[in-house]
Structure formats: C-alpha cells, structure tokens
Design a protein around this nucleic acid. Structure first.
Length: 499
DNA sequence: CGACGGGACGC
DNA sequence: CGACGGGACGC
C-alpha cells in the first residue's frame, strides 16, 4: 500500500546495487541502523532476475537517514560495486529529475507568535547543527505568522528533530519551495480591506466596542469610511512591536512612520478600515505605558497636530488612500519639532481623555479616583492593578510538561501585547492565545512556579481596565485533533479500557 | 459565569 | 543513471 511506504515520511531507502545482492547481505549491512520493516529486491517479472534495485523500509525516518548517510558508496560484498543509497521518493512521485536537495533537511513548524528565531535555534540545535531557523513574517509589518522553517545540514538531524521535537511544534518536512512560474497574483491588498472587521455591534463579541463609536467624531478629521490615528511612541519600539500594538483590534490597514523623530520618540500614522476600530485602538492604546515609563500617545488624526505630519501632507480626509510603503520621507522638516508639539499633543490627549470620561462611554466601571496616574516609579494601576515583576524572557515550547492557565476577562480581553507582557513577567511564558470572539484564553508556562505565581498575583486583578480571572486550565478534550488520532495506539487504549 | 488555534517561504 | 511486489478486505 502506498500509504504504508510513506508513513513515516522519508523512512524508505532506494538502493542501486549489483543484481546478485541477497536479502541476507542487505540485512547484515542495514540491520544496525534500526528496525527494518521490509526489504524488497525488485525483480524482472519474466526472468525473475534482480534488477539491481532494492527498497528498504525502516520504521523511522532517522534510521533511514543514518543508513543512507553511512551506506551510500559502500560495497556489500568483496569485489562488488559500490552501492548508491538514497531516500526513496513517494510512490506517486517516483523518480525525479529535479530532486530538491532540501526535502530531507527542512522542517516546517508552528511556533508561538511571540517566539524569536534565537529562541527556536536554542531549542532546535539540540538535534544537530542548524543551517537556519526562519520565522515567516508578514512582509510589511514584520509580525510573525506563527510558522517557521528549520533547516539542518544533515538529513539525520532533521529527521531526529522531526521525531523528537515537542509535539506542540507539529513538525512536518517542509514542502518544497514553489517554483517560479506563477506570474502575477500580485495580491494587492491595496486597501487592506481584506481583513474582515469582526468588531462592533452585530458580531456578538461583546459591548466594549459599541459604546465607543462616535465618541471622537467631533473634531476628528479622519476619513468618513475609516479611521486615522496619529501616535507618538518611544523610539526603541520596532515596527513589529508597533504593529502588534495597533493590531489590538480588527481593521488595521496601514501604519506609516513619519519622518521626524522627536526627543527619542517616533511618530506613526495609523489607518483602520472603519471608524469604530480607530476609536477602539485610540481608547485602548492612548496612555498605555510602553516601554515602562513611556506612555504612548494616540489621538485622532486631524486636529492641531496635522501640520506636523509630513508624509500625508495634505491634511484632512484622504478617503481610501492607497497605503504607502514604509519609507522615510527625509527631506522635509526634520528637526523642527520640539516641546511645542509634545505639549500640544499632551494637551489634546488630556482633552480627549476628559471627553471620553465625562461622556461616560465605554463599558468600564466608573473610573474612580483610584486610577489617578500619580505614578511613583513604574507602577501604573491603569495598566495592572497590582504591582508586577519586571519583564522576563519568553520560553520556547519544551519537551517537558507544560502548565496551562485559563483566563477570563470582563468586560473584554486586554490586547495581546498587554497579556504577553503581563503574563511574561512571571517568567517561562511559552504562549498566550485567546479564543476568537470570546473573553477568555489560555496561557502556557514551562514551569509550575511561574504558573502558580501568575495565578497568585493576577487572579481577580484588573488589567487595562478589565477584571481578570486566572485559574488552572482543564486539560484539553481528548481525541479531537487529527494529530492525536494519528498517534493513538488503539491496542493500548483497548487494553486500558478493558481492564 | 467562562473552555480549546494556528499552516508555507522575495529564487 | 536509477523507481515500485506481495499479500489481501470480517472476529
């Protein structure tokens, strides 16, 4: 059956050897590399003579890989010709002229969105010398797509990684790169409107959006069908981080850096495909402290600061403008911005905040005097109601047991950024992911200590204005995923259930 | 109350 | 230059 010969992938050898080679000689030469499931000496139908072609099926890819590496070019019997040993292609594929040399070396894996290539290298180098680890990123934003390629120098190492890396990576051998024939899909998501807006009222995703819409409409010169914000952030923030911040809600269309940097701050223009999204982002991000001690300033584009923005020059509502590649528009007023702008901005922000608060919009509980931003040192109660440890490095998915928390927030979830930062501060955080359209999610740690500490300090605290419950997660329902089913040993299950 | 995702590379 | 058998579906 064709399925069996491809089960584990790359576990079958294709061998060219003398026509007199015997089963015994093959066993003698190849048994040492692992468990042989089948040896097939291909014979001519009529003469029944060997054609000098042999298939050897191993139970594991790594066994076949090692056998290939060590036995290729060796001679089996005295006086015989050197044999050629290759990893067989699939039956369907058969002999190929364009043999992709990467097909045995490159794995495709799922990775946490926040994982770094360095982190993954650190993990995957335990299986052998790496060529590279490459996270697939959104080209314009730099945001990880949650997948990566891992390439080794030796097929044996790739196979070991395939077999032994943590199951959460869901490693497979990478499909060959697509050849260069597709001329122009040229997927010009010009308007970026392809991103569905799950947002406000109809979507059943809760009310935290609904009340907001319109609150900034007065005095905002943003386009009628979208929403444009202008933001000041600390210069240390990379594009990817900025993208993550503003990706707080669906509908993000474009982020364009503005040329002028002011006192260690950078300015970006941010477009959403609808007004409510922009309003929401503004509401959530303005005043957010990141990095610690540096508050982000966000306000609707179109009031007193417009003239400062060089890129979009003609201030006012460019409706449905085409996104521009991030590029520095260096020529114009580079250094002329000063305290004046900051003061203007701060004032505008203060005003906007007052408007928001006095309007009584939003679903938060009435903001009491507790939330005064009289910060001694870095403690910002509007970010988190309890004092947090300093940021810690993330952990890669491990081979050991992981510890998972279940979190629920009312009235909604804080941004992904905030969640990662906050839960990351207890150390050994692997991942946080949230359920689509729900106010809950899962947080995975590599150690019980970190997990326990997160519960202790965060349970029933307020994060970004949301009350959060943090508890140990129930284990996932068994037998729902394909991979689980694939790996299930039915005989063991049966034995267990019958006793 | 509040429970289980994500998947492809500038040749 | 070098690519695909044998066995066989239900106790």
């Amino acid at each position: 059956m064709s399925e069996l010969s491809a089960d584990p992938p790359n576990s079958r050898l294709f061998i060219l050897c003398g026509k007199t080679v015997t089963d015994e000689e093959l066993h003698e030469a190849f048994d040492k590399y692992g468990h042989i499931k089948d040896i097939w000496i291909v014979k001519d139908r009529n003469t029944m003579e060997s054609k000098g072609v042999v298939y050897i099926k191993f139970s594991k890819s790594s066994e076949a890989a090692l056998a290939q590496e060590e036995m290729n070019g060796k001679t089996l019997a005295a006086g015989g010709k050197p044999i050629k040993v290759m990893i067989a292609h699939s039956r369907e594929q058969g002999s190929r002229f364009d043999d992709d040399p990467e097909r045995l070396l490159r794995l495709f894996i799922l990775v946490p969105k926040a994982a770094s290539e360095e982190q993954l290298e650190e993990y995957f180098k335990k299986f052998g010398d790496l060529d590279y680890v490459s996270i697939v990123k959104n080209k314009t934003s730099g945001e990880s797509k949650g997948v990566a390629y891992v390439k080794y120098h030796r097929a044996y190492h790739a196979a070991k990684a395939y077999e032994e890396c943590s199951r959460s990576y869901k490693a497979v051998f990478a499909r060959p790169r697509e050849q260069k024939n597709q001329s122009s899909i040229d997927s010009n998501d010009r308007m970026g409107f392809s991103a569905p807006y799950n947002g406000p009222p109809g979507g059943g995703s809760g009310g935290r959006w609904g009340a907001g819409s319109g609150m900034l409409s007065s005095g905002s010169g943003s386009p009628a069908s979208g929403g444009r914000l202008i933001a000041l952030l600390h210069s240390s923030l990379r594009d990817e981080q900025i993208y993550r911040l503003f990706d707080i809600c669906p509908g993000l269309v474009d982020i364009r850096p503005q040329a002028n940097r002011i006192y260690g701050m950078q300015k970006v223009l941010v477009d959403y495909n609808c007004h409510a999204a922009a309003v929401h982002a503004c509401e959530k991000l303005n005043g957010f402290e990141y990095p610690p001690n540096y508050r982000i300033s966000v306000k609707p584009y179109g009031s007193s600061m417009d003239e400062m923005s060089d890129g979009g020059g003609a201030s006012g509502g460019l409706l449905g403008h085409a996104p521009v590649k991030p590029e520095v528009n260096g020529s114009s007023g580079m250094t002329t911005i000063s305290n004046t702008e900051l003061a203007t901005l701060t004032a505008a922000l203060a005003k906007a905040e007052t408007i928001i608060k006095t309007a009584g919009l939003g679903t938060q509980a009435p903001t009491s005097g507790l939330l005064k931003a009289s910060e001694a040192d870095t403690f910002d109660q509007t970010y988190c109601s309890v004092r947090l440890p300093p940021p810690q490095p993330l952990a890669a998915p491990t081979d050991e047991e992981t510890f998972r928390l279940f979190i629920v927030c009312q009235p909604g979830l804080p941004s992904m950024y905030a969640l990662r930062d906050i839960f990351g501060r207890f150390g050994n955080l692997i991942e946080v992911y949230t359920l689509h359209g729900k106010n809950c999610g899962y947080v995975t740690y590599a150690t019980k200590e970190s997990s326990d500490n997160a519960i202790k300090t965060l349970h029933l605290q307020e994060v970004c204005g949301m009350r959060m419950k943090v508890m140990v997660a129930e284990p996932p329902r068994p037998g729902v995923t394909r991979s689980d089913r694939k790996r299930m040993r039915t005989d063991e299950e049966d034995r267990a259930s019958s006793s």
